[in-house]
Design a protein around this nucleic acid. Structure first.
Length: 230
DNA sequence: ACGGCTC
């Protein structure tokens, strides 16, 4: 396991993905302002980094999904607004092949960009990238519960929680135990009013051009699901 | 071993 240099921020977990001649570093970090995922693309000559707030990880997963599942010439550019940042997703193609470009624009920094190759046989680069994000999202949700409960032994005292709660869907200022707020989702998810869910912090919205896409987490006895509505 | 990159 290779972790980047550690400053004041705490490293929670590190992963790497090597694809073609690029090396991607994924570092989940924490500081007093919150948690974020640092994604760096390293080649022999260059290194570029984007910083994704934890709440953005699930939307990254979803957007990578979109590009994996969308036909080559029907994939639109997308933008994702999180906090004060905007991430731009674009597909491109050149003689080396297809790639997904993810750019971060924030007020204070210069724009930074990572480029994820699709790969030569299908989209295995994007699929591998998504897999890492899924792993991080799952592990981050466990870490979230651990720190939120401030319990030294969460696996003994809260054995069910870690599998039931996804990161990013529980707002940071929930004062109730995560389990009780979570149990309400089944009823709330049936409500057709998106603004009602938005008010309760249970829905996320991505605006693309004139459209708005709503992402809502739910579960039932069949398992977990993410509902996307336009 | 590449190499892509308006916001």
């Amino acid at each position: 396991m290779e972790c980047g240099p550690v400053g004041n921020d705490v490293e929670l977990l590190c992963k790497t993905l090597q694809f073609e001649h690029k090396l991607f570093y994924f570092d989940l970090k924490e500081n007093p302002r919150g948690r974020y995922l640092k994604i760096s693309e390293k080649t022999s000559a260059t290194r570029s980094t984007i910083i994704v707030p934890v709440d953005g990880i699930v939307w990254f997963i979803n957007l990578v999904d979109y590009y994996i599942n969308t036909d080559e010439h029907e994939a639109f550019s997308k933008e994702l607004k999180i906090d004060s940042k905007v991430f731009y997703f674009d597909v491109g193609e050149n003689k080396r092949g297809r790639f997904l470009k993810v750019s971060e624009a924030s007020v204070s920094r210069n724009r930074s960009t990572i480029i994820i190759p699709a790969g030569s046989s299908g989209e295995e680069g994007w699929i591998a990238f998504r897999k890492i994000l899924l792993e991080i999202n799952e592990e981050a949700s466990r870490l979230y519960i651990v720190s939120n409960q401030q319990s030294v032994e969460p696996s003994e005292h809260h054995p069910r929680l870690s599998d039931d709660v996804g990161a990013g869907f529980i707002s940071g200022h929930v004062s109730q135990p995560a389990s009780s707020s979570y149990l309400n989702i089944d009823r709330l998810i049936e409500l057709p009013l998106h603004d009602e869910m938005g008010r309760l912090g249970l829905s996320k919205v991505i605006r693309v051009d004139q459209k708005r896409f709503f992402f809502d987490l739910g579960n039932n006895n069949r398992g977990h699901f993410l509902r996307i509505s336009e």
